[in-house]
């Protein structure tokens, strides 16, 4: 079943065509890798899907509902969470508060009741607190819950960013370079976490430069080059494709 349908997306920045007529689909419960050399348009595509950029042409459907050009918070509320490439956290808040803030869209009690602190609203918050603690434990951040996000090491900040996104309860998770810059053992742990996230029923679209991680993690891979889709298929097919190797290595090697 198709969860996210990207149809003929084009995005232009001045004279630069960042994305040209890109189309592909993300199936429910799969881990789809999005790879390509620098400047291929991967991050732009993430920004287009999550609503930070409006596409110049093309349409995007999530669960058969068109989301093209919707506001960032509307898209998030539909069940798409994204992680930014640069650690984007509430740096001056504690780890726990960071995750707790992620529950915003889950509250069913009206804001008025939250303001009045009615018993029902308080119960709802208590449930969120409990779930936030569970997510922290799941991402191995339980011991750091009272640290300021700014004081965490880089790797833990990445985990925290994912924890916040999980608090949103997404159906689709967009991960922008989750293991880039990590050492092999950290990478291994993160890959395992992403697999477990998928097992929880979350579909994952991942941009990553670490090829070993991508090849071992992804069910399918889409290759972008210079804003266009070069190829799409399972890791084995991508690994050995001459066009992909050329795109990555460039002409100086050939």
């Amino acid at each position: 079943m198709v969860l996210l349908r990207i149809r003929n997306i084009t995005r232009v920045f001045g004279a630069l065509i960042a994305l040209r007529d890109v189309s592909f689909e993300v199936n429910r419960s799969e881990i789809l890798g999005l790879i390509g050399p620098n400047g291929a348009g991967k991050s732009t595509l993430f920004n287009v899907i999550s609503g930070f950029h409006r596409p110049d042409k093309g349409r995007i459907f999530f669960k058969d509902t068109e989301i093209t050009g919707l506001r960032v918070d509307r898209i998030a509320a539909m069940g798409i969470s994204r992680i930014f490439q640069e650690p984007t956290l509430f740096m001056q808040e504690t780890v726990f508060e960071n995750v707790f803030s992620g529950f915003h869209r889950h509250y069913r009690e009206p804001a008025w009741n939250a303001f009045l602190h009615t018993p029902a609203a308080n119960r709802e918050e208590a449930v969120s607190r409990k779930k936030a603690a569970e997510i922290l434990d799941f991402m191995d951040l339980g011991a750091m819950r009272d640290e300021l996000a700014a004081n965490l090491p880089h790797g833990h900040q990445r985990s925290l960013a994912i924890a916040i996104a999980l608090a949103c309860g997404p159906e689709l998770l967009l991960l922008d370079e989750p293991v880039t810059g990590m050492n092999p053992s950290e990478t291994e742990v993160m890959i395992e976490k992403i697999r477990q996230i998928r097992e929880r029923g979350v579909t994952v679209l991942i941009v990553e430069h670490d090829m070993r991680a991508v090849m071992s993690l992804c069910d399918r891979i889409v290759v972008l080059n210079l804003g266009e889709k070069l190829l799409e298929g399972p890791p084995d097919k991508i690994k050995n494709d001459q066009r992909v190797i050329e795109a990555y290595l460039g002409k100086q090697v050939i």
Binding site: D73, R74, L89, M91, H104, C168
Partner: peptide
Amino acid sequence: KLSPNLAGTLGINP
């Protein structure tokens, strides 16, 4: 206040 971008991705309408 702390991060409008992150707030947006949490479904908060700034």
